[in-house]
Nucleic acid binder design. Structure first.
Length: 465
RNA sequence: UCCUCUUUAGCUCAGUUGGUUAGAGCACAUGACUGUUAAUCAUGGGGUCCUAGGUUCAAGUCCUAGAAGAGGAGCCA
């Protein structure tokens, strides 16, 4: 197509190769100008910044330039020059412009002026072309990359745990069923129930709600592992912090106790935030300016300050003494409500908090029981604005204690025989936690709604795109 | 799922006590302008007032039901 090789706009903007011939391709953000000259702001997603294309009307007729409208895809060949304008270092003096894909201005939904996030959600197929979603998606990539880099550098192994699961044992919430049966006319057993033994897997199957149990199996062989994959919850949750399909990171480490686990969680989160500050500067500055004026300050604060660590019991004491009216009263043994968590994080300590030592009755069966017989070695990392960002624990490695807990809680032990066997054969103390990837992104981007930090959100009554 | 709020032009919103032809900004179209910075200026077109009932001489406005969206809560990551 062209004699020159296409260069991405991010590279062009920092180039010093003035007067060289370049080729750029991208989507038009705005066009403005007068009878003599037109200015085109071009973006290809490589950076939030646009490159300015200068087109003389002598060379490009006004009629031709009509097709170079907001949203159109064009390629531009021209000379890279220093820009006389103050807003950009370089610009391209166009010699040849080709309209690759028109965008009819009367029907193209995106305008150069800002749109509400609610409206953009309705056009999720086009919203990556906006500054905000370009920034969010680049940051999302950077965080995913940093997660793999962090664990790889520490000698952790990435384990792919199954997405389709035959057990609902973890009890982490309602599940999506996976089936190939004809739902109009399913096979029945003699007593009229659906005969799942005729289904694809010969038993009931669901989408995973957590890779943790399988992650533990791997940790009890490879020492340090992590998972990073999609997770599905069929809860009817309608909040800015929940998705039906989200991504979760679950490290699991042999020979880690709860303190090692907290140390890792804190170091991990700080590493990720620092990585964002160092590698996503342009995008973060845009989000700071546009949506959340305290974003950069808050990110820096998290990197610079140690997290507060306290026990559930200490937390409850603080809440009981607080001069505060609670919608849900606090006393030892109740699960903390978000008003309580927010008080501790946002009012009392004003920094991230790690809570440990929860009552055993409000936590999952696999958590390690303390000697007091009342509490378990759970930990929740609570962040300002978004609440629980990490939930984890030291795991119960003692077969008898684990087994009796499973019995107490009426969990189907026959679905967990493989999990129990790891405690029977060469058991070891181990710990792990789960980090909600989109919750992390809420914090790092400062966005207010989790549906705006994933490209195509799945929520109750919404599976478009 | 519960509570509260919202739904009027392509987008963001105003619309008085129920009263005649429902407005603004932006976008879009047309024109003007010798380097613009979400350019500017002038002119213009553009409406299922979310849906279905109801009250009334008269409903964008009041009532009932429903739908969709948002915020808070619960569940959790």
């Amino acid at each position: 197509m062209a004699s020159v090789k296409r260069i991405k706009i991010k590279e062009l903007l920092s180039s010093k190769a003035f007067n060289s011939e370049v080729l750029a391709m991208g989507w038009v953000r705005t066009r403005r100008g007068n009878k003599n000259v037109a200015f085109i702001a071009l973006n290809d997603g490589s950076t939030i910044n646009n490159i300015q294309i200068v087109a003389d009307v002598e060379v490009f007729s006004e009629d031709f330039l009509k097709d170079v409208s907001t949203g159109a895809c064009i390629s531009v060949e021209g000379t890279l020059v220093e820009s006389p304008g103050a807003e950009q270092p370089v610009e391209i003096r166009a010699k040849k412009i080709e309209v690759i894909g028109k965008a009819d201005p009367t029907t193209y939904p995106l305008q150069k002026k800002g749109h509400s996030l609610e409206f953009l959600r309705e056009i999720a197929h086009l919203r990556p072309r906006t500054n905000t979603f370009g920034a969010v998606l680049r940051i999302r990539h950077s965080m995913a990359f940093a997660i793999h880099k962090y664990f790889n550098d520490k000698g952790f192994f990435y384990i792919h745990t199954p997405i389709v699961t035959g057990s609902d044992a973890e009890g982490a919430g309602a599940m999506f069923r996976v089936t190939t049966l004809d739902m109009e006319n399913p096979p029945r057993t003699e007593d009229g129930k659906i005969n799942w033994s005729e289904d694809f897997f010969g038993k009931e199957a669901n989408l995973t709600v957590s890779g943790q149990l399988e992650g533990e199996l791997a940790a009890l062989a490879l020492s340090d592992i992590y998972t990073f994959g999609p997770t599905f919850r069929a809860e009817n949750s309608n909040t800015p912090r929940h998705l039906a399909e989200f991504w979760m990171i679950e490290p699991e480490m042999a020979f880690y106790d709860i303190t090692d686990n907290m140390d890792l969680a804190e170091d991990f989160l700080k590493y990720l935030v620092r990585y964002a500050l160092e590698n996503c500067k342009d995008d973060l500055e845009f989000l700071n300016k546009m949506w959340d004026k305290e974003l950069l300050e808050r990110l820096q604060f998290v990197v610079d300050n140690p997290f507060v660590r306290l026990t559930y019991t200490e937390g409850v004491e603080i809440l009981e003494k607080a001069n505060q009216k609670w919608e849900f009263p606090v006393s030892w043994g109740v699960d903390l409500q978000s008003e309580h968590e927010r008080y501790l994080v946002e009012k009392h300590f004003k920094k991230p908090v790690i809570l440990t030592g929860y009552p055993r009755n409000i936590k999952a069966f696999y958590m390690k029981q303390n000697d007091d017989g009342k509490t378990v070695r759970a930990m929740d990392v609570l962040f300002p604005k978004i609440g629980e960002i990490i939930g984890g624990s030291q795991r119960e490695e003692d077969y008898d204690k684990l087994y009796s807990r499973i019995k107490e809680m009426n969990i189907h032990e026959e679905q967990l025989w493989w999990y129990l066997e790891t405690r029977k054969f060469g058991t070891a103390p181990h710990s792990g936690f789960g980090l909600g990837f989109e919750r992390l992104l809420l914090f790092v981007t400062g966005m207010g709604n989790i549906r705006d930090v994933i490209p195509f959100p799945r929520t109750p009554k919404n599976c478009e795109f």
